[in-house]
């Protein structure tokens, strides 16, 4: 069980598909004008990712190596069509807001990347967990970006107006999408470099006393 928790943490934080692996940029930039759309897009992609990972993992011994990409694309587009029809039936406003980006989940690089890198080599259950982890990581990144853009660009959070705030429309426009994501990824890189440095310091601190003592000893020897 612990293994799966670790997998989830890996997907959402340490190895986030958008913020760290830099995959799936088109839906990330396009559907994050509102938090509502971001959640919808993220969960739709998560559903497809879990199902496609499960199926590809089940079929991994039957799919010939030469045509595997085509086979993956057929499996993925089947699930995408199912999700699209379900959304049109039950979540029509969201379906209209996301527009072409629902069918475009087919060519989302995150899904193909997980199929190729994980599901084609692992058992069904871990593959499903991997799909869930990566999907939630994708949703998390989308929500983070959409939260900033909606707050600054429209002055709302989940559609609720913030009183006394003049919105800066540029954050809703495409230019704002690129820039906000740029700043977000810069923040992530900063956090990663700081934590890496801390880990390094901890390591050297562990070694330091011994080496410092040795240095002090050698210094004393020289004095003597």
């Amino acid at each position: 069980m612990n293994k799966y928790v670790k997998q989830l943490k890996e997907g959402i934080l340490d190895n986030n598909p958008v913020l760290v692996q830099l995959l799936g940029m088109c839906p990330t930039l396009a559907t994050t004008t509102e938090l509502k759309n971001a959640v919808g897009m993220g969960l739709a992609a998560t559903a497809v990712l879990v199902c496609s990972n499960l199926f590809i993992s089940l079929l991994r011994k039957f799919i010939p190596k030469q045509v595997r990409i085509a086979a993956y694309i057929v499996i993925i587009s089947g699930f995408v069509t199912a999700v699209e029809l379900l959304m049109r039936a039950y979540l029509y406003s969201l379906y209209q807001a996301l527009g072409l980006f629902i069918p475009l989940i087919v060519v989302n690089c995150i899904i193909l990347a997980r199929a190729e890198a994980f599901a084609s080599k692992n058992k069904p259950l871990p593959s499903m967990v991997d799909g869930l982890a990566m999907g939630l990581g994708f949703t998390f990144a989308l929500c983070l970006l959409a939260f900033v853009r909606e707050l600054l660009g429209a002055g709302t959070v989940f559609g609720y107006q913030i009183p006394g705030y003049t919105p800066m429309v540029v954050f809703i426009l495409p230019a704002g999408a690129f820039m906000t994501l740029g700043f977000l990824i810069a923040t992530v890189q900063k956090i990663r470099s700081v934590t890496a440095e801390r880990a390094k310091q901890k390591q050297t601190q562990g070694i330091k006393p011994a080496s410092a003592a040795a240095e002090a000893a050698s210094g004393e020897e020289e004095k003597a």
């Binding site: 740029g182 810069a186 923040t187 890189q189």
Partner: peptide, 23 residues
């Protein structure tokens, strides 16, 4: 640029400026 902005973030911000021009 500052270390944190090296690579992808700077690329994105430049793309944002270009998008502003295209808007």
């Amino acid at each position: 640029p500052p270390a944190a902005f090296k690579g992808f973030p700077l690329t994105l911000i430049a793309a944002g400026l270009l998008a502003m021009a295209f808007s």
